[in-house]
Amino acid sequence: MKRRDFLKNTAVFVSGASLSLSTLEFLDPRELLASQPSLRWGFLVNTYKCVGCGFCVKACKIENDIPLEANVTRTWVERYVMTKSGETIRDCPQGALNGYTSKLLDENASGMRAVPDEEVAQAFFVPKLCNHCSTPACVQVCPVGATYQTADGAVLVDRKWCIGCGYCIMGCPYGVRFFHPVERVADKCTFCYHRISKGGNTACAQACPFGARQIGNLRDPNDPVAKAVLKERVGVLRSEYGTKPNVYYIGLNEEVR
């Protein structure tokens, strides 16, 4: 056989064989389960209950090895002060790690700002964390697939594979991602996946003294979170980005973005 013919025949054989083999689909039991999952993690935040103590932030940082002094955090609490003249002032010093103990609002480079009590129309706190979106922008933009979504809906980062390009940080409309100061890879809230997948609670929800935070299974009709999402008037953050977030808020204001 001539070399040319040999190469030709090999090419025909390989392409023919791979085509017919590709019709045989290997079924993975895990894949089957994922196509009809009975579990979808969701989160419920009741902003009426939050007092801005920052216990959740501290608990999260300790549980997940995010250095306390580093100015990044997987979860944080924002303070909103609305004045009678219609102005909204927001602040979030150090992610509220140490709680809100002063009435002064931290405006970063613009300094501290005092709002007299009689001018305040309403004020409240809003805890934030990763929304574990159903169509996460961060997973879409990761160039190496280091960020992925589990079958039960959690969005996680593979620390051994992340190249640290920061595209996911840029892609997230909620600003929940950051570079871990020690690991030097992208980092974010995991819903404490290591705990919840063993039947535990998230560190933040466990630390919250007022029950403002709750994790649950959105597919289970008897789950308190799923019930609240069904029966209460809840909202999600920035739905205009089409990410379909799974953190629901009770008492969400238009001013909260």
């Binding site: 002094e69 580093a70 955090t73 979030c92 970063n108 950051f178 570079f179 100061p181």
Partner: peptide, 25 residues
């Protein structure tokens, strides 16, 4: 830990309300 500077912090100055994880990455 006390001196830990996260990526982006060295060259970013924040003004008014900026989310805690936002820096010029």
């Amino acid at each position: 830990v006390a001196q830990m500077v996260v990526h982006g912090e060295a060259w970013t100055i924040k003004d008014l309300f900026v989310l805690p994880n936002e820096y010029v990455y």
